[in-house]
Design a protein around this nucleic acid. Structure first.
Length: 110
DNA sequence: TCAGTGACGCACA
DNA sequence: CTGTGCGCCACTG
């Protein structure tokens, strides 16, 4: 069989959808939640390819430092920052102003 | 098949 | 605190 055998991204979309409004999660945390620990880059790649369902709250996925993955001068950055603010998340210096990484660690699922 | 790439993460200075 | 370097792994051409 010549199947491409690519990993099923479904659990990844599920993990992102599971992020509560007003909170954010890191790529690594999403990867773990999706059952693929250490695949943070893979998760980022999926989003970069703009795959996944339409209503996917991709803007709630940030770096482990709470930093937005895009350059501060990028249009994509402004887009994500705008959406996060709409969710009630405050952004300062391109960084999510949440109690350190309360969420990035395990405040959500841990 | 091989080599390059990247919306990452972490250790170290 | 910031900046730099390396490792990681899946996908693309």
């Amino acid at each position: 069989m010549a199947s491409t055998a690519k990993i099923d991204p479904a659990p990844v979309w599920s993990a992102i959808q599971a992020i509560p409004k007003g909170e954010v999660a890191s790529y690594g945390q999403v990867a773990v939640r999706a059952g693929h620990p250490g695949r943070a880059r893979w998760v980022a790649q999926l989003l970069a390819r703009q795959l996944g369902p339409k209503g996917l709250p991709w803007h709630r996925v940030v770096r482990s430092d709470g930093r937005i993955a895009f350059p501060t001068d990028s249009a994509e950055f402004l887009e994500q920052a705008k959406r996060l603010r709409a969710d009630g998340v405050l952004i300062v210096n391109g960084r999510v102003t949440i109690s350190k990484r309360s969420i990035l660690d395990e405040a959500i699922w841990g």
